[in-house]
């Protein structure tokens, strides 16, 4: 399915008379599938077990740039360092563009004569925030008056820009700076194609320079997976014999809900499912931009339901 004339807000030339402009432009091709499965593996007088599974997969691709611009980015997402939600022709709408080390055709880093890698400041594609797929699984058990249900969310793949880590490195608070002061020879090739042999020191200048140790592509965490216990609810319906004596209340149930109780992830920050901005940001927004973003909160709720 093709989406034409997306609402986008580029800055455009000031010759428009304005700084920002809303236009309808660009073509994005979306291909995806969403599958909902429900089932009841066990269903008898004592126990009912319901299962609901929800699988989502989406692949999208920018097939025509807005206004045929050579480069397009959502300026609001340029919130930490030189990485932003950029659209690149032929890549996902959830791309990240930013500074990267210069690379040759084989993908090897190109190192200058001084031993430091050269930096590509033309905002190349450095990551895709779109997960490969997501899967939600709800299980519900009913045993007489007691019901237990819980939802697990799984996310497989997709990159996260850990700008928090980048700031911590600059401040010397990250574990990445433990090797500070050591000498290394950067893995890469010189501009003439020979192996680099010039040693450099990972000193303060390295860890505080946006063109050295803070190059944004080094803070893109690739293929982030997560399993999250999104919510767990236990409810208990009190026996009618107990309630009927009151003559007022016909039935009474208590329930306890906990949100985000467990999170298993290979992401180094607190939570990979964050948004550096809020929902009002346009386009693909700043999902997957972690810049001191708060993780999803753990919450408990206790409820009483009464019928009269």
């Amino acid at each position: 399915m093709e989406s034409r004339n997306q609402i986008v807000q580029p800055r455009l030339s000031y010759a428009t008379g304005y700084i920002l402009q809303l236009i309808n432009s660009g073509v994005v091709r979306n291909r995806g599938v969403e599958i909902l499965l429900t089932g009841s593996p066990v269903k008898n007088d004592k126990l009912t077990w319901d299962v609901i599974g929800n699988f989502t997969l989406n692949r999208n691709k920018v097939t025509q740039m807005p206004a045929d611009l050579p480069e397009f980015y959502l300026s609001d997402t340029w919130l930490a360092g030189n990485a932003r939600a950029g659209y690149v022709l032929g890549e996902s709408m959830m791309s990240i563009t930013g500074y990267d080390y210069q690379r040759n055709a084989n993908g090897e880093v190109i190192v200058g004569a001084n031993g430091f890698p050269l930096v590509n400041t033309a905002f190349p594609f450095i990551g895709n925030r779109q997960p490969k797929f997501t899967f939600g699984l709800t299980n519900r058990f009913q045993m007489g008056p007691l019901a237990v249900s819980f939802l697990f969310d799984f996310r497989i793949g997709g990159d996260v820009y850990n700008a928090t880590e980048r700031d911590l490195v600059a401040l010397g608070l990250s574990k990445r700076t433990l090797d500070r002061g050591t000498q290394i020879v950067f893995e890469g090739v010189t501009q003439t194609g020979e192996r680099n042999t010039v040693p450099i020191t990972l000193d303060q200048a390295w860890y505080t320079s946006g063109l050295r140790g803070l190059v944004e592509s080094q803070f893109i965490e690739k293929n982030i997976n997560a399993a999250r216990l999104r919510d767990l609810t236990i409810s208990y319906t009190l026996p009618k014999s107990l309630i009927e004596k009151t003559k007022i209340i016909k039935n009474l149930a208590v329930n306890l809900t906990g949100n985000n109780l467990l999170l298993f992830t290979n992401y180094s920050g607190p939570d990979p499912d964050v948004n550096g901005l809020n929902a009002s940001a346009r386009g693909s927004g700043a999902m997957g931009f972690d810049y001191f973003s708060l993780p999803q909160t753990v919450a408990f709720a206790l409820g009483v339901r009464a019928g009269f």
Partner: peptide, 17 residues
């Protein structure tokens, strides 16, 4: 065991401002 299948093909929309 019973299963229900729902297949949703993606949709997208465009709006004029």
């Amino acid at each position: 065991i019973s299963f229900l299948f729902i297949l949703l093909v993606f949709m997208a929309s465009s709006c004029k401002i």
